[in-house]
Each structure stands twice: as structure tokens, then as C-alpha cells.
Design a protein around this nucleic acid. Structure first.
Length: 298
DNA sequence: TACAGCTTCCGCCAGA
DNA sequence: AGTCTGGCGGAAGCTG
């Protein structure tokens, strides 16, 4: 029992990994390959740019489900709930994270009228998703590879070189935003089904949701829904539901001084005792401890 | 698709 | 009074 408790503690720390990266340096870039284990739906500071170079999978970002395959580029705003998933060993990607303040400084230099994230994400949305051509994909890959290499280099001109690489990435994103037709690859019926189910769950996780309720709205066979959902998202239906609820609870804990009864109710937990149990199990600390950590000065 | 068997969840109560 | 843990039984979810 104690070892699994340690594991959940470590999971909580992992949530904080991106934040601590950005504290040390405002830009982080890393290449990873291999399947993604099911982890937490989570949020962190800074903007995340996710470039997929091989294999396929899917990315839950708030209420959206984006398909991932070679040449997809996903941009996620700061503190936006997300979770990438792939069960394939050949899945490879670059993950680039940029500190909010750093982007704001770049924005000042470039004379952006709206916030850098608005500029970056194309308006008021909290995320965007693009399908790159082979040439665009190669540009993004080489810039990301350059960034990753520079991070471990003692080069005195490193910061300048990184800024150069970063500018390449942002120019590409600017092009993508202004390209006339965003070539939305037609997704299959199965994929659309799960996209709609995820959107439905994200919209109503505060209420009681049951599998039967979902089946009334989406008339497919029970086993098909459950199996497809798991294969696509990496979560079972109730697991994802709990993830949405926990993240809402975390936001409310950090952002309000509401009592636990209110936090639990507004997050979709019908029972206070159950809320405490689940929170403890999934994050390793109690709700009050989470609130204290979130409010502590950095 | 239907179902059996197993696991996990959920709401409730009691108590620290 | 508010926060948190433990345990229980029925309900619901999940897998093969």
C-alpha cells in the first residue's frame, strides 16, 4: 500500500515537472519516442507545442480530441487541460514548451496587438491543431531539433541561437494560421464518434453521466463504445470522467476559497467522502494540502 | 450482440 | 464546523 502511495506522490510531482523546467529556463524542447503510458489529464504553465513525427495517437485538449500522426502540430495554451495518448512503439514527437512571460516579451518586440497566446492560438481559443505538409514538417522538425541540442550546449551565444530557432517555429505557425484552407483531414466515423463523446463528457461532467446515458445519445453497441473509447483515448469512460472532475476541483481549489462541500459539488462529485477518497488516491495529497501548495509563493 | 464474471465506483455511515 | 479516513453493500463499469 505504501509503495503505491509513493507512486501517486511521484505522479503529483510529475505534474509539476513542466513548471520547474520553465522556472530554470523559459524554453524547453525534448524529443521522445515510444508509446505513451496512460497518465493524468493535467495542466501546467507555459505554452506547449507538440509536433508528431511518426506513429499515430490522439490528443485530448479540454473538450477536443485531436488526431495525432506524422506531421500534426498541436498548440496548447497555458493552464489548459490536456493528455496525449498513443499505444504505438513507433510514436515519436517533439515537445516544446515556452514560458508565458518569455512569449509576452517576444510579443512586445514584434508589436503584437493582442496577447501572445491569442496571436499564437489564433483568436480566443485555448488550443489549435494543424496538419503540416512534408516540407513544413521538416522545417518544424529541424527547428525543434536545433532547440533541443542548444539546451544542452554551453555555447555563450546559446540564447541568441535559441531565439533564432524559436522565431523559425513561430513564423511557421504564423503561416499556418493564414493559410487559406486549413486542410482538415476527413476523420473516420469511429474517430468522430469518440470526438463527440469526449465533447459531451467535457460539457457535462458536473452532472451525473452513465454509460447508458451516453448510449442513448450515441446509439452504438455498448461494447463498441467502450472498446473504441479506450483504444482511442487510453482512458476508460469513467477514468476520463474522473480526470475532468479532478482537474476542475484543482482549478477551484487554487482559484477560490470555497469550502470542500462546494468544490466537490461543483466538480461533479456527488458525495464528499467519495471526493476525498478519489482526490487522495489520484494526487497523493488531500484537497486542502493541494490548495496550500497552489497558494504558496513560488 | 449478449452475457458471465470480475473489478471498480459511489453513496452512505461512523468516527478521528 | 470543517476536513479527512475507513469500511460496507449495491450499482455500474469493464473485459474476454
Amino acid at each position: 500500500v505504501s509503495s503505491s502511495l509513493d507512486e501517486t506522490r511521484q505522479l503529483y510531482e510529475k505534474d509539476e515537472v513542466t513548471n520547474s523546467f520553465l522556472k530554470r529556463h523559459p524554453v524547453h524542447c525534448e524529443f521522445r519516442t515510444g508509446k505513451l503510458p496512460r497518465k493524468r489529464l493535467h495542466f501546467h504553465e507555459g505554452c506547449e507545442i507538440y509536433l508528431c513525427l511518426g506513429g499515430s495517437g490522439s490528443y485530448i485538449v479540454e473538450e477536443k480530441l485531436y488526431p495525432l500522426h506524422a506531421g500534426t502540430l498541436t498548440i496548447i495554451g497555458p493552464n489548459v487541460v490536456h493528455h496525449p495518448y498513443s499505444g504505438e512503439d513507433s510514436f515519436s514527437r517533439y515537445i516544446l514548451t515556452i514560458d508565458e512571460a518569455y512569449l509576452a516579451t517576444m510579443g512586445q518586440l514584434c508589436g503584437w496587438k493582442i496577447s501572445p497566446f491569442g496571436q499564437f492560438l489564433g483568436g480566443s481559443s485555448t488550443s489549435s491543431h494543424y496538419f503540416l505538409t512534408a516540407a513544413q514538417s521538416e522545417r518544424a522538425r529541424s527547428a525543434a531539433a536545433g532547440l533541443a541540442e542548444l539546451l544542452s550546449s554551453p555555447d555563450p551565444l546559446r540564447e541568441l541561437a535559441m531565439l533564432h530557432r524559436l522565431t523559425e517555429v513561430m513564423l511557421l505557425i504564423g503561416e499556418l494560421q493564414h493559410s487559406p484552407a486549413e486542410q482538415q483531414l476527413a476523420s473516420g466515423a469511429n474517430e468522430r464518434l469518440i470526438q463527440e463523446v469526449v465533447a459531451c463528457m467535457a460539457a457535462s461532467y458536473r452532472d451525473q453521466i452513465t454509460i447508458d446515458g451516453l448510449l442513448e445519445r450515441f446509439p452504438v453497441s455498448r461494447s463498441k463504445l467502450l472498446q473504441l473509447f479506450k483504444a482511442t483515448t487510453g482512458f476508460t469512460v469513467t477514468q476520463l470522467l474522473t480526470e475532468y472532475r479532478l482537474n476542475q476541483a484543482k482549478r477551484l481549489l487554487a482559484g477560490t476559497d470555497w469550502p470542500m462541500t462546494e468544490i466537490a459539488a461543483q466538480s461533479g462529485f456527488g458525495d464528499l467522502s467519495h471526493f476525498y477518497h478519489v482526490f487522495r488516491r489520484e494526487s497523493g495529497i488531500t484537497p486542502r494540502q493541494y490548495r496550500q501548495k497552489a497558494l504558496a509563493p513560488r
